[in-house]
Design a protein around this nucleic acid. Structure first.
Lengths: 144, 144
DNA sequence: TGATATAGTCAGTTCTGCTGACCAATCTGT
DNA sequence: ACAGATTGGTCAGCAGAACTGACTATATCA
């Protein structure tokens, strides 16, 4: 199976990582978290984030983000607190259960990086990351 | 914005490519093709492919594939013809409209590869593809 | 102060995928 | 040769995740 295009090659490994994280989190007992909920929860900053901020970073509409935050809130992973600086806004903050699951997810992320490094070797892994980061200049419309 | 994990870095560029292909195809007048329809149509072999085959290659269930082929058929991109070798099976073949759009899509794919190569340089692009291909060994559960 | 922009929600819809149940044809082992 | 298992495919029903459009409340700026 030769010449897959480069984008597909990336997609294969990216999806593998996402699936692996989701499965690990689920197996650790947090099985009421959907992939989309996880993706958005991963964006929440230490001091809390606004729904609109989360939406921007996850590249979805604020309406979609709002629904996902609802679900996260109902499941006890996050809380909405009023933003002291702006009465229109709320800050979405991690609840204790949210912090727990974040740790699990981060642990798996590190394990994946380790596995990939073991397979490729440290130098090729470094070059891979460097190249991918460089590529963002022309592929990431947000490029934080 | 530093240290995104490697999988996310891949996802950013992969999605950029998929969006670009879908937009180009849509702009070329094939605007009744959804991304999922495009993804499955891209798998159709010259001699035609079975629904189950398409499903396997696109990593979706045969039921989902069947629905997508329905839509493609209704929109005139493909035809279902009986398989002479197996009375249970049908072969999904590209209709003229399907061939047209395939050419457009392939042209965009090549343009993307060119753009990425221009940005990264030929040698880094080669190494990138090589590394990604190598990584499939541990991230692609199918690995054709 | 009035016009405009921003934060967020509500309602409704579309797309994409899933599971389960089923039918018809083919293949296999005795 | 034929009963049972496997394979190709469809139908029906459902769920998750995204979208657009319309709306309210607050902030900001000219």
């Amino acid at each position: 199976m030769a010449d897959l295009n480069s984008a597909l090659l990336m997609f294969i490994s990216a999806r593998s990582a996402e699936t692996r994280i989701h499965e690990a989190v689920s197996a650790a007992g947090y099985d009421d978290l959907s992939p989309a909920m996880g993706r958005i929860a991963a964006q929440i900053a230490e001091e809390g984030s606004r729904v609109t901020e989360l939406a921007d970073r996850a590249r979805i509409t604020k309406q979609s983000a709002s629904v996902l935050v609802d679900q996260l809130e109902r499941a006890g992973y996050v809380a909405r607190v009023p933003d002291p600086a702006d009465a229109r806004a709320k800050r979405v903050t991690l609840a204790p259960r949210g912090r727990e699951v974040q740790q699990v997810a981060r642990r798996v992320e590190r394990a994946i990086e380790r596995d990939w490094t073991r397979h490729l070797g440290a130098e090729r892994m470094r070059v891979l990351r460097e190249t991918l980061t460089d590529l963002r200049a022309i592929t990431d419309p947000y490029a934080d």
